[in-house]
């Protein structure tokens, strides 16, 4: 997985988003140890202070847990990870719905289109 950062939005919040995706996708498994701030800062070519800030914000949400001596870990709380996953899915749906509305589709139309898509051979995940 590579880092994809724009410079027109705060970088720490983009890093948070991408760390969340890494966690819910299982790239960082529940309970696993995370790389150090410095390693990740290097990998993403960002300032270590920025990476540190993204980490502390994620610690506040509970998704990342710090063990004093042994480093940072992904939470073992699978239901919390599931919640974040649902939350992100809802955000994506909201974005999708907004765009479809702009194109003039009602919810009914959209459901219909999705149904057709599914019937035409399960290309939903193409």
């Amino acid at each position: 997985m590579s880092w994809n950062l724009d410079s027109d939005r705060p970088i720490y919040s983009q890093i948070m988003e991408q760390l969340k995706i890494r966690i819910i996708s299982g790239f960082y498994a529940p309970g696993s140890k995370l790389p150090s701030v410095r390693e990740l800062a290097m990998e993403a070519s960002v300032n270590p202070n920025t990476m540190q800030k993204a980490f502390s914000e994620l610690e506040n949400t509970g998704l990342i847990v710090t063990m004093r001596t042994s480093g940072r870990f992904v939470t073992e709380d699978i239901s919390m990870i599931q919640n974040v996953r649902t939350e992100l899915a809802n955000e994506q749906i909201q974005i999708f719905l907004t765009h479809m509305k702009e194109l003039g589709f009602s919810i009914q139309d959209i459901l219909h289109l999705l149904k057709n898509k599914e019937n035409s051979g399960g290309e939903l995940y193409e």
Partner: peptide, 30 residues
């Protein structure tokens, strides 16, 4: 992406001294 802070100078004076993330947050710009 690697800067914490920026200092803008103009005509021998400091125009602005702030951290880069607040420029992005406040102005929605790089």
């Amino acid at each position: 992406a690697i800067l914490d802070d920026v200092i803008f100078m103009k005509e021998g004076q400091i125009l602005l001294s702030t951290d880069t993330e607040s420029i992005r947050a406040e102005h929605g710009k790089s």
